[in-house]
Design a protein around this nucleic acid. Structure first.
Length: 650
DNA sequence: TAGGGTTTT
């Protein structure tokens, strides 16, 4: 720890913090900012008047960094130094330094808007511009101006972003702390290749033949390209003349890889063997692979975008930002001097790449964010004028207001309703929290809890129908429940109920190709949601998973609750075919996703109305996860839509 | 009849 660069800046940092409420720290990789800033402030006595909080965008980071700090201070984790992430609070009365995800801090500020328990709040990795960090930046700006007791805010960011953050906080001081990276030599391509897979392949082989030992990390956009490149690399390396160069191991690395495959990158290679790790941006920040000396950067990344006019998501391949490109290059210099091969010209880097990644807040549906802000009851609120570092478009905010109005979270004047307040307490998308509240009225809360938890699972739970998997399958893909024809929400409910009947058996998940990790996550989410709902309903509600299962049923109450919850995600079938048009957004022709279990009637036609969980534009615009609903439930929503006046909702 | 970049409450 003593040789971390940041330690030499302690005096300067403390002086600046003493004299200013907000300080921006530009700390490059390896500067030690994440572990050291909190300890410096602790030494200076800032933990005497409150807790020093450090937010992280990711759970694993909150856990691992707090563990390191506890170790360095020689205390037990959970005592003076602790962490708090969803489902896991390892802090105590004695905790003075607390690492937490930015999402947890946002939750805390709901029940304690002044965040009085904290003397210092450090927002780490702000340059990643996660949705939660961006909300926190806006809240911190208000808080330092308003809070009675002295609050100190530190924000760490990257070189290219620091000035902007400083300006946002009324030109607060900006300190730069060097990193501890080894130099990385950058090589640019003369022009953009026509095929990134081919170009990566060629570059990787050049490195293998010409360069001394050291692993190669290759950044691609997705699973498909990764699999292609892995196959080609294996083929080419095998055909190299024996003894002409060292052995090679080729490893794919992406999020949908099973955990046991992911951890392979952490075991060191055998001697005289080079590893090629072909990865998505998961290797940019989330996973750190040791031993990398060479990086190949395609310059592209897959990004999810939301279109507020149509309510449609798409997953697009876009150019990385300069911050991302530098982060990728930095992965080559962690253990010794490295090299980074950029598969694009320097002109593209300089002229075309954005400085910083487009913040998530400008690429997401903001219904949840706006509801959260409304529930804080900030004085002088005009949600359209909330002070964001990078404001989302008016269109996007109006879309959020419209959605919230349709599900009764705000009234026609834009004021939060009591239903809206309850919704804000639930860690769910507004459509699902609205569904839970309605289901509680209809006596089907238990079922709704299960549906909401299943839809919250981050991983794909259902069997993966890829070609390679079909071959591996030991049994035909059948006998999972089919939603009784009503659609995917009901199927998700039935699957969980089956698992419950099988005593949450892991083997049962494996037999049906359901991701074990995902199902266990669902169980935990369900438990958390049950606890919150029981508090809201004052203990009277029945939340047992299996209590409602009684032979054949038409799930009428549950579907009605879903219809109310998804009032802003409604579609009407075309008269003569199975296409639907969306209602409530700029009307779009969409299809039920082919993976849906929704069943057509005897004439081959689907029901007249469905609600959908998500619109996703891939090869065509699809509704994913649909539920059949009845005309009589839809009519009041259509009425409301007709009378809607967005300009009054502000 | 088709396709999952990465996070998080």
């Amino acid at each position: 720890m003593a040789n971390l660069p940041i330690v030499q800046f302690e005096k300067k940092i403390i002086e600046t913090v003493e004299q200013n409420p907000v300080v921006v720290i530009i700390g490059e990789t390896g500067s030690g900012k994440s572990t050291q800033l909190s300890q410096m402030l602790h030494r200076k006595g800032y933990t005497d008047s409150g807790i020093v909080a450090v937010t992280q965008p990711r759970r694993v980071a909150a856990v691992s960094v707090s563990r390191r700090v506890a170790q360095e201070l020689g205390v037990r984790l959970g005592e003076e130094v602790g962490y708090a992430i969803r489902f896991e609070d390892r802090t105590s009365e004695r905790t003075q330094i607390k690492y937490l995800t930015d999402g947890v801090l946002l939750r805390e500020s709901l029940s304690n808007p002044e965040l009085n328990q904290y003397s210092v709040i450090i927002l780490d990795e702000a340059h990643e511009r996660s949705l939660n960090t961006d909300i926190l930046l806006g809240l911190m700006k208000r808080l330092v101006g308003s809070r009675a007791s002295n609050l100190k805010v530190l924000i760490t960011s990257a070189t290219l972003d620091g000035e902007k953050v400083s300006k946002f906080f009324s030109d607060c001081p900006l300190l730069t702390v060097p990193g501890k990276l080894f130099p990385v030599e950058i090589f640019y391509s003369k022009e953009r290749p026509t095929s990134y897979v081919e170009s990566s392949l060629k570059t990787a082989l050049d490195i293998h033949v010409r360069e001394p030992e050291g692993d190669v990390l290759i950044f691609m956009t997705g699973q498909d390209d990764i699999e292609k490149l892995v196959l080609k690399l294996e083929d080419k390396v095998r055909s190299l003349e024996e003894g002409s160069c060292m052995d090679a191991i080729i490893l794919p690395l992406h999020g949908s890889l099973p955990p046991e495959m992911q951890v392979r990158v952490f075991s060191p290679p055998p001697p005289n063997c080079r590893r090629f790790i072909v990865a998505t941006n998961i290797a940019e920040t989330s996973l750190t692979v040791d031993g990398v000396v060479y990086v190949i950067d395609s310059g592209y990344v897959k990004q999810r975008q939301y279109n507020p006019a149509t309510g449609m998501y798409s997953l697009d391949v876009v150019q990385v930002s300069k911050v991302q490109a530098n982060q990728r290059a930095g992965r080559a210099g962690r253990t010794r001097p490295g090299k980074c091969y950029r598969l694009y010209p320097s002109r593209v880097y300089n002229d075309e790449f954005l400085d910083v990644t487009v913040p998530e807040i400008q690429r997401s549906s903001l219904a949840g964010t706006v509801l959260y802000l409304k529930s804080l009851d900030l004085p002088d609120i005009d949600i359209l004028k909330f002070d964001f570092l990078d404001p989302p478009s008016t269109e996007s905010l109006e879309d959020a207001l419209k959605q919230l109005y349709l599900i009764d979270a705000i009234d026609e004047n834009g004021s939060i309703t009591s239903v809206g307040r309850t919704m804000a307490e639930l860690p769910l998308e507004p459509s699902l929290s609205r569904t839970l509240i309605e289901a509680n009225e209809y006596g089907c809360l238990s079922q709704a809890l299960t549906v909401a938890a299943m839809l919250s699972a981050e991983t794909n739970l259902l069997p993966n129908r890829s070609k390679s998997n079909e071959k591996k399958r030991k049994h035909p893909p059948l006998d999972l429940p089919d939603g009784s024809g009503f659609g995917d929400h009901i199927q998700l409910l039935q699957i969980f109920e089956c698992w419950d009947e099988n005593d949450y058996d892991i083997g049962w998940c494996k037999y049906y190709d359901l991701q074990v990790r995902g199902m266990l996550f669902v169980k935990e989410v369900r438990k958390q949601l049950s606890q919150i709902m029981q508090k809201i309903a004052k203990g009277s509600s029945d939340v047992q998973a299996n209590q409602s299962r009684k032979g054949h049923q038409n799930y009428r109450n549950l579907r009605k609750a879903l219809c109310i919850g998804y009032a802003s995600q409604l579609a009407e079938r075309m008269r003569h075919h199975n296409g639907y048009r969306t209602l409530g957004f700029k009307s779009q022709l969409v299809q039920v996703h082919p993976s849906s279990v929704l069943q057509p009637d005897d004439d081959g036609l689907y029901g007249s109305y469905v609600v959908y969980h998500e619109l996703i534009s891939t090869s065509r615009p699809y509704m994913r996860n649909v539920c059949a609903v009845e005309r009589q439930w839809v009519m009041p929503i259509l009425d409301k839509l007709e009378k809607l006046n967005v300009s009054k909702l502000r």
